[in-house]
C-alpha cells in the first residue's frame, strides 16, 4: 500500500489548465456541468483513443465539469465518431431520439465530418450530418485531444441549432 501512496505523491498534479468560456447571461447553455454520450458510428477506433485520452490526468476533462455518461438519457451532448456505417445509421438515430432536449451534437474526426478516407463506400453515409443534425465539427484524423476539449468546452455555451 505504501508503494502506491508514494507513487501518487511523487507523480504530483499533472492536470493542465484549460479555459472554459464563461457562459453569457441570457444565452441558453449548460452552466457548469455537461454530460456527454459518445456514439461510435463505425470509426477505425483512432478517434476513440483521443476521446479516452481526454480522461487522462493531463487533460482531466472532468475537472472542467464535463463527463462521459453511460446512457443518452443522461446526456446533454452527443459526440459522434466514424463515417456512420449503414448498419449504425438506425442505432445513431435512436440514440439521438433518446437524448433529452436541450441537446447538442458534436461530430469528431474527418470521418464524422464527411466520411474521410471511407467516403463514397457503399457501406457508409459520408459523415454524421446526412443522418442527424450536427451543431459543431472537429476535423482531424484523429483530432488531438486539446482540439476536442476546446470544442466540448465551447458546447457549454453553444447556441441552440435551428430546428430542422
Amino acid at each position: 500500500m505504501w508503494k502506491l501512496l508514494v507513487k501518487i505523491f511523487r507523480t504530483g498534479r499533472l492536470t493542465e489548465k484549460s479555459s472554459r468560456p464563461v457562459t453569457q447571461p441570457h444565452t441558453p447553455g449548460f452552466g457548469r456541468s455537461l454530460a456527454i454520450r459518445h456514439v461510435d458510428a463505425g470509426s477505425c477506433n483512432g478517434c476513440e483513443l483521443e476521446l479516452l485520452a481526454l480522461e487522462n490526468p493531463y487533460y482531466a476533462l472532468s475537472s472542467d465539469g464535463a463527463k462521459f455518461v453511460a446512457s443518452p438519457r443522461h446526456a446533454d451532448l452527443l459526440i459522434v465518431t466514424g463515417p456512420v456505417t449503414k448498419a449504425m445509421k438506425d442505432p445513431l438515430t435512436k440514440t439521438l431520439e433518446a437524448t433529452p432536449e436541450p441537446r447538442r451534437v458534436l461530430a469528431v474526426g474527418d470521418c464524422a465530418c464527411d466520411g474521410g478516407v471511407f467516403r463514397d463506400s457503399y457501406a457508409v453515409c459520408n459523415g454524421v450530418s446526412p443522418v442527424i443534425p450536427v451543431d459543431h465539427q472537429v476535423p482531424g484524423c484523429p483530432p488531438p485531444p486539446d482540439e476536442i476539449r476546446r470544442a466540448i468546452l465551447r458546447a457549454f455555451a453553444l447556441p441552440r441549432q435551428a430546428q430542422k
Binding site: 456505417t85 448498419a87 457503399y122 457501406a123
Partner: peptide, 11 residues
C-alpha cells in the same frame, strides 16, 4: 458484429 463494416476491401 458487422456494425463497423465500412467496405474497406471495396475501397
Amino acid at each position: 458484429l458487422g456494425y463497423t463494416h465500412k467496405g474497406v476491401d471495396g475501397l
